[in-house]
Design a protein around this nucleic acid. Structure first.
Lengths: 165, 165
DNA sequence: GTAGGTGCAAATCCTTTGCAAGTGA
DNA sequence: TCACTTGCAAAGGATTTGCACCTAC
């Protein structure tokens, strides 16, 4: 069993909760994505494996994953929550193209340090920081030295087009 | 008439829209706040001046204000949109206390420059950047060298507790 | 006169909750 | 056993839309 699933079950145990087949399946699938899945996206994928699972269980399990520290909730301005597994990259931020909805992930240690020091100077104790840059990706801005805009994918899920470390 | 209202009416004109008494009132009130008002907060205040105005008009006018570049939409994780006038501070970010809901505004030219260069290196053209740091303010973290946590205010609106320039 | 605006009620969309029937420890 | 789970349907809460009536230009 992966260390992430172990962490998940440790969380369940500590909280007096139970291990179930549904949670097993949902967590397995979730941990193997690195998309920014919405609850409904995940629901659709999970249903392919077990058509009897309900939306509600997806919502509840995603909440557990966040509590267990295995997932982060992100919002890109389309009015729905998306989730990303924390096991891929410990923390990263997003450039969000408001035209094609693709996202570019990046991580900047300098920004993080800068923001930490700003928080510290106000006596603030951060638990989470979120940086989002909205705008046009190179393709949508018509920059011909970059890829052309992608067709919107089947699920309407933003594709990740790159990770800048 | 303030330059902001002029800008608003210029936007209406360019878009072929009309000036109305309702828009006048809503814009006047909005531009004189620096709270992070939700649509409903603004609705309550506006109704004190004109009880006949409907929620819908508030929603629609806030949207116009954003389009006109006079307001920014912000979300603090409580599932509702809040708006701040752009005439006070051109741009700023937020430390958000997840216990007492107060926010501390700050502006960091260094962060902005850093993020601009990250965006540029990906060929991304930013239109808006949003930095949010969630955590505990000094008071809620029990830091006695700072103010004690505030009573939650009447409207449940996060109070601004400071602006770091 | 006419395109655009307004307020109301109804509709939407995402998410949560109540509940009766299951199920893991 | 029994507290925790599940799926369904209904409820919720924020925001949007349809519509008949009004109003700025």
């Amino acid at each position: 069993m992966s260390p992430e699933k172990q962490q998940f079950y440790r969380h369940l145990q500590r909280a007096g909760l139970k291990r179930t087949g549904q949670r097993d399946l949902i967590v397995d699938i979730f941990l193997h994505t690195e998309d920014h899945l919405s609850s409904e996206d995940l629901y659709r994928i999970v249903k392919e494996q077990d058509a009897s699972i309900g939306q509600t269980t997806i919502y509840r399990t995603l909440k557990l994953l966040v509590e267990a520290g295995l997932a982060s909730e992100v919002r890109f301005g389309d009015g729905r929550s998306r989730y990303e597994p924390n096991n891929k990259f410990p923390h990263h931020d997003h450039l969000i193209c408001t035209t094609c909805n693709r996202t570019i992930e990046f991580y900047s240690a300098e920004s993080k340090a800068l923001l930490d020091s700003i928080a510290a100077s106000r006596g603030f104790h951060p638990t989470q920081q979120s940086i989002r840059i909205f705008g046009l990706c190179a393709a949508c801005a018509g920059d011909s030295s970059h890829d052309s805009p992608p067709a919107i994918n089947k699920r309407g899920v933003p594709d990740v087009i790159g990770v800048a470390k």
